[in-house]
Amino acid sequence: MSLLAKQPRPKKCAVQTCRASFVPRASFQTWCSPDCGVAIARAKAEKKRKALAQVERREIKVRKEKLKSRGDHMREAQQAFNAYIRARDQAAGHLCISSGKPLDWSGNAVDAGHYRSVGSAPHLRFDERNCHAQSKQDNRFLSGNAVDYRIGLIERIGLEAVQALEADQSVRKYTIDDLKAIKAEYRAKTRELKRAAA
């Protein structure tokens, strides 16, 4: 009985732009010519480079997160909260809480204005009843337009809720973990509002 050498079967080149049929010289060969072999090697090297870059970016992000101060976390949580307030009031079609005028949502002309300011009542900075969409004019240049804000707030949430806000003197201390949770919660709420509006 004689042993016949098994002839390799033709394969298609693994390079997407080539795909030529060829007979491999070795079982692991997946390319038809040296040029295609170089192309495969380059593609593998590029894939490896991208994977390493992605790992490096993740590590940098983790290191940056560790360097953040409590103030940085507070600022990010406040930004997420304010973005939610603007999205909530835009979705509801609310007018400016203090002037009662239509808000210009096309640009950067709308603030999330607090009834009791963050400076005087920091414990209410993340209270949704205390913050509403307000024109930059009223919020920044008219110091919040507090008298008209109160009138608009009573119309929106009722006198009892406004009096409860005014009487609230509780002390709240936010930890870094609290601030991270607040940021995550309000980012998720904002995404949900935008998804519902689309």
Rank of each mutant, 00 (worst) to 15 (best):
A87N: 02
D111H: 14
F81G: 07
Q78A: 09
A109M: 15
G93Y: 08
L124T: 03
K68S: 03
L103W: 02
P102Y: 04
N82G: 01
F81T: 08
L95E: 12
A80E: 07
C131E: 03
C96G: 05
D104K: 11
I85Q: 07
I60T: 11
G107T: 05
P102M: 08
L67K: 12
K61Q: 14
R116S: 00
R116Q: 10
K61D: 15
S106W: 02
R57A: 15
V110G: 00
E59M: 14
A77G: 08
K68R: 14
G71N: 08
K68P: 04
R129S: 05
V55E: 13
H114F: 01
S120L: 11
W105N: 03
V118R: 15
P102Q: 01
F81D: 09
F126Q: 04
E65H: 10
F141H: 10
D72K: 08
A133D: 09
A109H: 14
H114A: 01
E46N: 01
C131D: 02
Q134W: 01
N130T: 07
L103I: 02
P102F: 08
R58L: 13
K68V: 05
E65W: 05
A77S: 09
V62N: 09
A51D: 03
E76F: 02
A109V: 10
A121G: 06
R88A: 11
E76K: 07
S120M: 09
H73Y: 14
R70F: 12
A53P: 07
R63H: 08
M74C: 07
S99H: 09
S106T: 13
A92C: 08
S135E: 03
I60S: 05
K66V: 09
R125Y: 01
Q137H: 15
Q137C: 12
A83W: 01
N108P: 00
P102C: 00
Y84W: 15
R125E: 11
W105T: 02
A112P: 03
R49P: 00
R49E: 13
Q78G: 01
Q137A: 13
A112F: 06
W105I: 00
L67F: 07
S98Q: 04
R125D: 08
W105Q: 00
E76C: 07
A45W: 01
K48I: 14
L52C: 04
A51L: 10
K101R: 12
R63M: 10
M74R: 14
D72Y: 05
R116C: 05
K44M: 08
A51K: 08
Y115I: 02
E59T: 11
I60F: 06
R88M: 14
F81L: 14
L67Y: 07
R125P: 04
E128L: 00
D127S: 02
R125C: 14
N108W: 13
H132M: 15
S117R: 04
G107H: 02
Y84V: 10
E56D: 10
K101P: 00
A87V: 03
A121C: 13
